[in-house]
């Protein structure tokens, strides 16, 4: 069974009296534990699509089922609960909380969303920080970390709640090529280690082919789907 199913998915933004169609009738499926990218130029609808999958926004038309939930049926509170339990997010600008250390940033969803005990939190946070190679930097605040380190912490934060799906919107846009490639490889390694599905958007041709499946978006339409250079089997 697919983790994400989209049927005739459309999104129109109304600005004043003008409607802008950001997504036009998308149909696709995402399998569990896959490593998927949505690519396309700026304004092609990548972020809008990830926002819909991430329950941050609602489709104008069509059907979207994520982890067995029809996300258009969820109200504000249910949406928050669903995001906290089933989804993880990685942002282009890392979006770490500046007043919390790396450890505390990763711990945040377990405290504020999952209400885990202190012992469980410590075990989970240390495990995931070790997996992303940031254990030795755990006591540093975000402004003491490099861009690549921040994104590693962001990956750890997205994974610590053991979500079914992690959505990463342009996760490498603010990183140099080497670091960007490292972050993508880290995400893929995490997929391999935890079995979590990763969906990321990018317009960077240097990293887009790191995905197993590449969906190309142009003007809100899904124009092309291809297999990436690094298919899951290649890493087993």
């Amino acid at each position: 069974m697919s983790l994400v199913t989209a049927k005739n998915l459309s999104k129109t933004y109304i600005t004043g009296e003008v409607g802008v169609e950001a997504l036009k009738g998308l149909d696709f499926e995402i399998e569990p534990a896959s490593f998927i990218s949505f690519v396309g130029p700026s304004g092609s609808g990548k972020t809008t699509l990830l926002n819909l999958i991430g329950c941050l926004d609602k489709a104008t038309e069509g059907e979207l089922i994520v982890a067995g939930k029809r996300v258009s049926d969820l109200d504000r509170r249910q949406g928050a609960d669903f995001r906290g339990s089933a989804l993880g997010f990685i942002f282009q600008s890392f979006n770490l909380l500046p007043v919390l250390t790396a450890y505390e940033n990763v711990e945040y969803p377990l405290v504020m969303i999952k209400n885990e005990s202190k012992a469980t939190r410590t075990e989970m946070v240390l495990k995931v920080l070790e997996s992303v190679g940031m254990l030795d930097q755990k006591d540093k605040f975000p402004d003491q970390l490099s861009g690549g380190q921040k994104q590693r912490v962001a990956v750890a934060r997205a994974l610590v709640t053991q979500p079914k799906l992690v959505l990463a919107d342009e996760p490498t846009a603010n990183l140099d090529h080497a670091t960007a490639k490292n972050v993508i490889q880290l995400m893929r390694a995490m997929r391999d280690e935890f079995g979590t599905t990763f969906v990321f958007s990018t317009h960077d041709p240097r990293v887009m082919h790191e995905a197993e499946v590449i969906h190309t978006l142009e003007d809100g339409r899904l124009t092309h789907t291809e297999q990436g250079s690094d298919r899951r089997g290649n890493h087993d």
């Binding site: 504000r76 928050a80 669903f82 997010f89 942002f91 969303i113 934060r157 997205a158």
Partner: peptide, 16 residues
């Protein structure tokens, strides 16, 4: 505002 967006996106309930 962006911080609020981040914590809301990762699932923090409005009440919290």
């Amino acid at each position: 505002i962006r911080e609020i967006g981040t914590i809301a996106a990762i699932g923090t309930a409005p009440g919290k």
